[in-house]
Simulated scan of single mutants.
Amino acid sequence: MGRHQRHDQFDTFGKGDRKKREQARAIKRVRDRDTREIVGYLYEWNTGQLNVMWTGDVRTNVVYE
C-alpha cells in the first residue's frame, strides 16, 4: 500500500465540518516532474478532502495530471 499525504495539507473543509470519510476516488495522477513516471494518485473523498497516495516514497518535485 502506498503512503498517504497528511489530510490537513489538502483539507478543503473548515475545522467545524465533521463528515465521515467513507469513499474516495482517484481524480488525478501524480507524476515526477522530470521523468514523468507515475509516483502517486490524488484522491477525493466524499467529504471533499484531497489526499495523495504515493506508490513509493513521498516526492516533492511533482505535477498533477
Rank of each mutant, 00 (worst) to 15 (best):
G2Y: 02
G2I: 00
G2S: 03
R3K: 14
R3S: 06
R3T: 05
R3D: 11
R3V: 04
H4R: 07
Q5W: 05
R6V: 11
H7G: 07
D8I: 13
D8F: 06
Q9Y: 06
Q9L: 08
Q9W: 13
F10T: 06
D11W: 08
D11M: 15
T12G: 06
T12R: 12
G14L: 15
K15C: 15
K15T: 02
D17E: 15
D17P: 04
R18Q: 15
K19D: 05
K19G: 06
R21Q: 12
R21G: 01
E22F: 06
E22H: 04
Q23D: 11
R25D: 11
A26E: 03
K28Q: 14
R29Y: 09
R29W: 02
V30D: 00
D32M: 08
D32R: 02
R33D: 03
R33C: 04
R33Q: 02
D34I: 05
T35Q: 02
T35P: 01
T35S: 13
E37K: 15
E37V: 11
V39M: 03
G40R: 04
G40V: 08
G40L: 01
Y43V: 00
Y43S: 02
E44F: 02
W45A: 10
N46A: 08
N46P: 00
N46D: 09
T47H: 11
T47P: 06
G48R: 02
G48E: 07
Q49E: 07
L50K: 02
N51R: 04
N51C: 10
V52P: 06
M53A: 04
W54E: 01
W54Y: 00
W54S: 03
W54Q: 00
T55F: 02
D57T: 15
V58A: 06
V58I: 12
T60G: 13
V62S: 03
V62H: 03
V63Y: 03
E65K: 09
